[in-house]
């Protein structure tokens, strides 16, 4: 198994898409629990920084979503208490808690998605289907840092020319807006060079441009893709035929642990933990080959 970054972006994307679908739309407490543990570990393994602050935000979301359900949903038979003639039921509370965990898992999943699915990976996938849009996105990604740098330069120059002279909030806002306006002119006027540079290199010569990328699709990618698809088909089948169904209303009825369910949960766990497993394996291999870090 290769480290996840080395797989073809299409494989990564399909993997994330399927996993996100399962985490987002499958309403089963066991699967939610597996996803929650797995996504936490994955986020810790792959996030670069700022995870601490994110968890504060996550906690607030969790509390809000868990509380919201019993407020709005009065289904369920086990009444815990009555507020303003509205019953608060155990089933609704538990469903709320599960939804809270599910939302946290999704947020964590997309954090990892954002780290791994870098712009050139996404461009590889969508550039093939939409080559012109792909080009637009690539151009924008090139211009964003260019504009940022030019804006700083312009701010510096204008400071020496007497912009921001009164050092109060209104003056600052006015100044920033004039810089933004001047930046618009700068970008639009100089953009003509970029446009000429595109035409000079044959842009618009052919109706369909090739969408080139350095990524390759190799045997290991095909293998991984096949395994992921087989695993998720197995789980999908289970969900569709109600073999993996937990009912919350009117009363909680957990999914009995059939052989099918055990295999399906195992497959789901394998899918969910895949990036973590890959990272651990990768570390171990590195240590073996290159010695202690």
């Amino acid at each position: 198994m290769k480290p996840p970054e080395k797989y073809n972006p299409a494989v990564l994307f399909v993997y994330f898409l399927i996993l996100a679908g399962l985490v987002m739309f499958a309403a089963d407490p066991v699967m939610t629990a597996i996803a929650f543990v797995a996504m936490n570990l994955t986020a810790i393994a792959y996030s670069r920084d700022g995870l601490g602050r994110a968890y504060v935000f996550f906690f607030i979301i969790f509390v809000l979503t868990s509380l919201a359900n019993p407020v709005f949903s009065h289904n369920g038979v086990t009444v815990l208490l009555v507020i303003n003639d509205n019953p608060v039921t155990l089933e609704a509370v538990l469903y709320g808690v599960m939804t809270g965990f599910m939302i946290l898992s999704v947020l964590l999943l997309f954090r990892v998605f954002s780290t791994l699915m870098t712009s050139d990976r996404l461009l590889y996938i969508f550039g093939r289907a939409f080559p012109k849009l792909g080009l637009l996105i690539s151009m924008t990604l090139r211009f964003v840092p260019l504009f940022g740098r030019q804006r700083r330069k312009m701010e510096d120059t204008q400071r020496t020319l007497g912009l921001y002279k009164n050092e109060n909030a209104i003056d600052t806002i006015k100044g920033k807006l004039s810089v933004l306006s001047a930046m618009t002119t700068w970008g639009l006027e100089n953009g003509i060079i970029t446009a000429d540079s595109m035409s000079a290199r044959g842009y618009g010569t052919r109706q369909t441009r090739t969408s080139f990328s350095m990524y390759r699709f190799e045997r290991s990618d095909a293998l991984m893709l096949a395994i992921v698809v087989v695993c998720c088909s197995f789980i999908f089948f289970g969900i569709a035929t109600d073999r993996l169904k937990t009912e919350f209303y009117p009363r909680i009825r957990l999914q009995p642990l059939t052989v099918y369910a055990i295999f399906a949960y195992a497959a789901y766990a394998w899918l969910a933990f895949l990036p973590v497993i890959a990272r651990i394996r990768d570390r171990a291999v590195h240590r073996k080959v290159f010695g202690q870090d």
Binding site: S138, R201, G202, R209, F212
Partner: peptide
């Protein structure tokens, strides 16, 4: 320069 990556810039004309 039109695109965001060196390899992509080199390929740009050929893509067109």
């Amino acid at each position: 320069i039109v695109t965001d990556k060196v390899w992509h810039e080199l390929a740009f004309g050929l893509e067109n």
